[in-house]
Amino acid sequence: MEIFIAQLISGLALGSIYVLLVTGFNLMLLVAKIIQFAYPQIVVVSMYTCWWVLKLTGNKLIIILAGVSVSIILSLLSEPIFRKISSIEGVDINASFIASMGIAMIMMDIMSHSINYGFPVAFSPDWVGGNIFGYGLITVSKGQLFALLGGIIAVLIFFFLLYHTNQGRFFRAIAENRFAACLVGIPIIKTSIFSYLIVGILGGFSAILFSMLIGSASPWLGEFVALKMLAVSIVAGLGNLQGGLVCGLLLGIIEAMAIGYFSGSWSNVIAFAVMLIVVLMKPGGLFGIKI
């Protein structure tokens, strides 16, 4: 039972990172009409930024600002590229998939060639922090607590924005029916750019929480996580924001349970096997495709 609770905590913490990634990915899919496979890579670049600023200064506020800024800048920089090939311009959405894979690959290669000799970077214990609660096998680390609380707060703010503000209503309108959104006079391009901004902010917070949770980052982390993000959003139903919340958390829990009860190295196999079964049974995703 102690193992179960311990792994549940660790799974929820990891799951909340997946939730943030899937939420950003789905928002891009719904509003900007692109498959943003490079999003996790942007998060990793943002983690590297945090690591670098952490070495220069111990000021946590500066680290957070730097991480979030880099994520916002990268997200916004990709907007003009994607606008040319997004389905807004009548191009097949798959083109954006290829483009974002390319962008992700470039970022990965730059990190693996020029930062820290390509070795993974480790965050100082001061940033990661130790356990803040312990009872037998059950422990809660600072990173886990922050990931969980930060994830919940970010998702709450995001859904508040989506359902209780004008911008959020525009997001939903474009997601649901772009032609009708056009007709009522919603500025499509401006709203789309705003979605890149929101995703940039989400990405920055994901980077901070992720670095606190796992305490390291590597050039390959982005691609690895991108596959999971894509898998989760397909299993939940592409573009299904609520489904993404459930499935993101579930993936975290499944992985943590696999680590707790089997050998850790099998966790990915188990997670993807479960997702394969779900997709075989429900090809449209557990909660339905929304695009």
């Binding site: 209503r169 525009f170 309108a173 029916n177 009708a180 959104a181 006079g185």
Partner: peptide, 18 residues
Amino acid sequence: VIFSSMSVLENLQLGAYQ
């Protein structure tokens, strides 16, 4: 052409956006 997953009122609110 309507926003079919939104309420009737929300559809009208979107129409009034301008």
